[in-house]
Design a protein around this nucleic acid. Structure first.
Length: 354
RNA sequence: GCUCCCUUCGUCUAGCGGUCCAGGACGUCGCCCUCUCAAGGCGAAAACACGAGUUCGAUUCUCGUAGGGAGCGCCA
């Protein structure tokens, strides 16, 4: 390398034609053509030409008797009658030597398509060291399978300005030949956005099982609270991932553990909080059916009763139900708690007013 | 070091010689909406790596340079 040339086999035995020796250091090498070049038409990279004098007489069988990778893949692919090889472009360098082996074997050379690499946010090749360890990591992080698929298909490929693709559309429209030649970076932000698009457009009953999975993963019993599909409807505008959604959903599945002091100070220790909560309590307790619509009507009635806007009762109520100042719309927030628990929490909050 | 691959907004991309003072999306910023937070609507800032050619005309074609990536094993 110091001399500016590649370290390579000196070709000592190349033309000797000696019989195989019993020698622990014996290997079998490929007699690569010395001149000419290998040309192939890559479906993504286009025409690639490789001079044979760049190629060494690579080892086919190691001294331990095992075949090397470059030999094994070719034999395996010939055996399996592989017609199209699609792999990462870190393999383009191996392609010319493999093509020479195909030819030496008298086998038909398959078509090649070398996909560009996907780089991590740090522009490094995605590996176990950083980024996702495996696809399942994305499930654990709260991404829907088809959202990940949709994100991946748009990496290095596009169809006009379209961003959202159903699996059926991907199958219909995708063609390896249309894939870009350059590497792309993995952007979790955009994946998250796509994920939320699906969270919002999918049937809540279809995403419910996914939410349940994450609820359990977080140590929450889905049976101890509202129907997961209802939770999805309340939270899909506020969570980008299922993991995030499960975390926000916990208020409705376990007793209120604590109150945020700032929330209490700002919305419970006010002149109108007690009256607002009492009115809400009365209206909710008198409700015929427990539905989001009815809860909504009850809150409006409570607001009218104390002569204020919805905000006057919504904020104290929110703190009463969640212990915080942030939650989905107040009707959903109250509805999901269930009537008994909602009334209990309102009573507990009233005790903290003043 | 050598060989190969790559190069449009911060990111993913559209563009396949004139329609581009470059379009869309994520993100960012502003406004609107509003019971909080979101979501949503509207709007803004933001890119053709550089240099030569070819051409009447280059983001688009060719060649260099720079930068990035990969490979150069008896590893896959």
């Amino acid at each position: 390398m110091a001399a500016g040339i590649k370290p390579r086999y000196n070709g000592f035995y190349r033309e000797r034609n000696e019989p195989l020796r019993e020698d622990p250091n014996r290997v079998i090498r490929f007699k690569n053509p010395l001149d000419g070049s290998v040309v192939f038409e890559d479906k993504i990279k286009g025409r690639v030409e490789w001079s044979n004098d760049e190629l060494d007489d690579l080892v086919l069988i190691r001294s331990d008797g095992f075949p090397t990778y470059n030999f094994a893949v070719v034999v395996d692919d010939v055996d399996m009658r592989i017609t199209d090889v699609i792999r990462g472009d870190d393999h383009v360098n191996n392609t010319p030597r493999q093509i020479n082996i195909y030819r030496a074997l008298g086998a038909e050379v398959p078509r090649f398509a070398h996909l560009p690499m996907i780089l991590g946010p740090d522009v490094q090749k995605l590996s176990k060291r950083h980024g996702a360890v495996g696809v399942m990591q994305y499930r654990d992080d709260g991404f829907l399978p088809h959202a990940l698929l949709n994100y991946l298909v748009r990496l290095g490929w596009s169809h006009g300005d379209q961003e959202i693709f159903s699996v059926a559309e991907m199958i219909e429209l995708f063609d390896v030949g249309d894939v870009n030649r350059s590497a792309a970076r993995f952007d979790v932000e955009k994946l998250a956005w796509l994920n939320q698009q699906y969270l919002k457009s999918d049937d809540p009953r279809a995403v419910a099982p996914h939410l349940e999975w994450h609820l359990r993963a977080a140590g929450v019993d889905p049976a101890a609270g509202p129907a997961p599909a209802d939770v999805v409807v309340a939270l899909r505008d506020r969570a980008k991932t299922l993991k995030e959604m499960a975390a926000k959903a916990q208020v409705w599945y376990a007793p209120l553990a604590a109150y945020d002091e700032q929330a209490v100070a700002k919305h419970l220790r006010t002149p109108t909080a007690r009256a607002a909560l009492s009115a809400a309590h009365a209206e909710l307790a008198a409700l015929g059916g427990w539905t989001v619509e009815n809860v909504h009507a009850a809150i409006e009635a409570a607001a009218a009763a104390i002569g204020g806007g919805v905000g006057k009762v919504a904020q104290p109520l929110r703190v009463a139900i969640t212990g915080t100042q942030v939650s989905p719309s107040i009707d959903h927030t109250v509805y999901l708690a269930g009537r008994d628990e909602a009334l209990r929490r309102i009573d507990a909050a009233i005790a903290r007013t003043g």
